[in-house]
Amino acid sequence: MAHYDGVFNALGLREWCDAGKEDGPMTMAQLLAQAQGADANETTGPLPFPSLDSLHEACGKIPQTREMTAGLERFFLDAKDSLKVVLDPLTQPLSWMLDGALWLFTSTPWWILIPLLIALTWWVSRSKPVTIFVALSFAFLGAIDHLEVAVATLSIIFVCTGLCVLIGVPIGIAMSKYDGLQKTGIPVLDLLQTLPTFVYLIPLIFLFSVTESKLYGIAIILYAVVPVIRLTDLGIRLVDKDVIEAADAFGMTSKQKLFKVEIPLALPNIMAGVNQTIMMSLAMVVIASLVSAPGLGVLVLRGIRNLEIGVGLIAGLGIVLLAVMLDRTSKAALARVDVSRSTR
C-alpha cells in the first residue's frame, strides 16, 4: 500500500486509477527495494511530499516525473529532423569559416603568421608596450611547443568574435531604436548569460554531429554575443540628446544620423562590448573542447581526464596568456578610440 491510497479512495477515483493499470518499467528505487526483499509500495517511513512519483504509487494514472524528461527528449528527437532541414544549411557556412580559419592559421608557416599577428597588434593598438608583450608571449608559447594549439584557439576566437560583432551590432542598434525590442530582448540576453555553459551544448549535441565545428561555433557565439549587443544598445542610447537634436535640426536623414553621429559617438561603448565578447569566447573555448573544438582547451581536458597535471596547468597558463594578450590589445584599441573622441 502506498501513502496516498486513502486520498484517491476518498475521492472515489480508485476505479479510474486501476482501470487499464499497467506497470511501467521499474524505477531504480523499486529495483533496489526488490533486491533487498522488501515491497517498495510498503507504507513505511515518513510521509513523502505529494510529488508525481509518490502519487503514481497510489494511482497508476498519474504520470511519473521521468516521463516528463523522457517527453522532452522525445520532443527533441522528433523535432530534430525537421529542424535540421532548416538549420543545417543556415549554419553550414559557420563550419566552413571555422575550418577554413583553422586551416589557414595552422598551415601558414610560423615565420609568416607570427609577424603578421604582431603587425596586426601594432595596427589596432598603436602601443609599443602591448606589441612587445604580444611578441614575447608568442615567443614563449613557441618555445614551450604550444604555438600550434594556441594559434588554433586564436583562429576560433577570431572567427567567433568577428561573427559576434556582425550579428551583435545590428541587433544592438535595432534594440536602441525600438523600445519594444529592447524589452523583449533583455530577458533573452539575461537567459543566455546566466544559462550554465554546459547546458548550451545539450540541445546542440542533439541537433548536430559532434564532429561538426559549427557545434562549438554556435555555442561560443550564443554565449559571447551578449555584451556586444548590450553595449551597442547602451552606447547609442547614451549619445548626447543635444547632438541628436542638432543633427535633426540640420535635416539629417536617419541613415546619416546613424552613421555620422550615433555609431561614431557610441564607438567607445561598442568597443568595450567587443573586448568583453573576446574574453567570453575565450572562456567558452575550453568548454567547447568537450565537443571537439581544437586548441589549448583539448590539452586542459587531457590534463583532467588522464590526471596529467603538468599538461593541464601549462595549457591553462597558455589560455591565461592568450587572454591577457587579447585583452591588452583590445583595451589599447579602445583607449585610442576614446582619446580622439573624448568630450573633454
Partner: peptide, 22 residues
C-alpha cells in the same frame, strides 16, 4: 519637404553648442 526646410531654409544654434565631438 521637412528635411529640405531644415537643410536649406532654417538653421539652428543651440544653448549647449551641440557640436559633433568626434
Amino acid at each position: 519637404e521637412l528635411r529640405e526646410l531644415r537643410q536649406t531654409r532654417m538653421s539652428m544654434v543651440f544653448q549647449k553648442f551641440a557640436l559633433l565631438p568626434h
